[in-house]
Write a protein that binds this DNA or RNA. Structure first.
Length: 118
DNA sequence: TATATGACCTGAC
DNA sequence: CGTCAGGCCATAT
């Protein structure tokens, strides 16, 4: 069971123009109480560098990972480039831009993890 | 072995 | 809308 590989896989499935929360990622990884570890993984860059880390925000929509990007405005420009407006308080509107994954998504991920031994 | 840290979350009020 | 306590857990020191 490789939590960080799971995080990596799930993050790559977040659609363009949508954002997911740390808790949501943890849940889809089958570890609902590991939201902090999701942030830890991204901060320490324990996942492959080609994942859309800018689409991960906290449960309020706040860009809590701002400081970990190369430049302070990297995350914001990436989000706005795909159509997600960022407020001056570094927050996005989750009511409009949250990724609403389906139950099927969750089931698909689960079987992917088992068949790939993650 | 023990304590601190952190890109977190939820419920209660 | 806002605050607060409590829970969470892999890593780091």
């Amino acid at each position: 069971m490789d939590f960080y590989k799971r995080v990596e896989y799930v993050c790559k499935q977040i659609p363009r123009g949508r954002a997911a929360t740390y808790g949501q990622i943890a849940l889809l990884c089958g570890m609902p109480s590991h939201s902090r570890q999701v942030g830890y993984a991204l901060n320490k860059k324990l996942t492959s560098p080609d994942i859309p880390a800018h689409r991960i925000v906290n449960h309020k929509g706040y860009l809590s990972g701002l400081a970990s990007f190369t430049y302070p405005d990297t995350q914001e420009s990436l989000l706005e480039k795909e159509g997600i407006p960022v407020t001056p308080e570094h927050t996005i509107d989750l009511k409009k831009y949250a990724w609403h994954h389906t139950l099927d998504d969750a089931i698909r991920f689960r079987s992917y993890f088992t068949t790939h031994n993650l």
